[in-house]
Amino acid sequence: MLIIKTEKIDEFLEELKTNFSVFNIGGSLSDGGMSFKKYFFPPVEKIFSKTSTSNVEVMKAPKKFILLGLDLPDLEALTYLDEIMQNPNEDFFYLQKRKQSVVIGLTAENIDTAPGGDIVFQDVGETKYRVWENTAKGKKLIKKYKRFFEESDINAGADSDGAPQIPNNESLGEWSRSMRELLLDSEFLAKAVEWSRDHPIWDELGKKCLGCGICTYVCPLCHCFSIEDSVGLDDKCSRCRKWDACTLPDFAKIAGGHNFRPSIKERYYDWFYHKFVRGYNEYGKSQCVGCERCKELCPAGIDIYEILSVILKDYKKTLAES
C-alpha cells in the first residue's frame, strides 16, 4: 500500500509550496480555534460589486491552494459541510473555493476508510504514514509528486488473519471520544433535544451564555451568514457575505423592529435545535463532530457534552416512567 515516510513529508510540503499556497490547519486549537471552514467560507467575503452604471461583478475564485492537517473530526466536518453547501441548491461561493483546493488530512486514528478530504495521511507508526487517495483530485496530486511516496508493506506485524496491526494512537482527547460516542445515536439526540424544549437547563443557560457567538464561529459546521452591503465613496458598491450567529441578539430581528427570538435562552436553544434536531432531520446526522472547539473556547465555560448528558439522563427517565 502507498505510504510516505515521515522524513519525506517536509520535503513534499516544501515542493508543494513552490507551486501552491499551502495552509496548515494544525490541530483544532491552533489559529485561535478557527477551523478549515474559513478557507471556503471566510468570516467576511465580498461577493458582488457594482458602480452606478456597471453591471453586477461577481468576485473571482482564488488561485489553487492546498489545505493541510485536518484531523479526523475536521475531515468528517468537511464532508458534511460539502453536503450542506450542495443541498437543496449549490452555494456558488463556497463551492467555487472548494474546487480550487486540495485537502490533505492527517490522523493517527485507526481508520478503515478516508473520512473526507482528497488525501489522508494516517500515522501507522514506525515513522510511516499510510496514504489514502480519496478523490481523483488527490490521486492526481500524488501522481505529480510520486517521488515522495512509495509502495510498502505495513503488515509487518500482521496477526494470524493477516489483518494489518496498526497501532491506535488515540489522538483524540477523552472529551471528543465521549462526545463522538453520543453522536453515534443522532436520532436519539434529536428526540431528546426536541423533548427538552421546556427543560429548566435552558433557563440556566439563558443566564450563563453571553450571546457572543464564539461557539458558532469556531464550529467547523455552523454556517449561518448574513448579507451586508456597503456604498463606497468611489461609487463602488459592494455586497459582502459575513458569518452570523444564531445566538446574536439581532439574528431574527426584522425591519420595523420585531424580534422573533428576543431572549438568549430562545437563541441558545435554537443553536442546539439546529445542530441536533433540524440538522438530523435534514441530513440524518447531528451537526457536530466532537472537535471540542466550542467547549474549549466558550468564555462562559459552557460544555455541550455536559448539557446533552443532563438532557439525555432526564429524557431517559421520562421514557422509563411513561
Binding site: 453547501m85 437543496p88 441548491n89 449561518c224 448579507i227 452570523d244 444564531c246 435554537d270
Partner: peptide, 8 residues
C-alpha cells in the same frame, strides 16, 4: 434560498 438560516 435555504442557506443562511435566518428564517428558520
Amino acid at each position: 434560498v435555504g442557506k443562511c438560516q435566518h428564517c428558520t
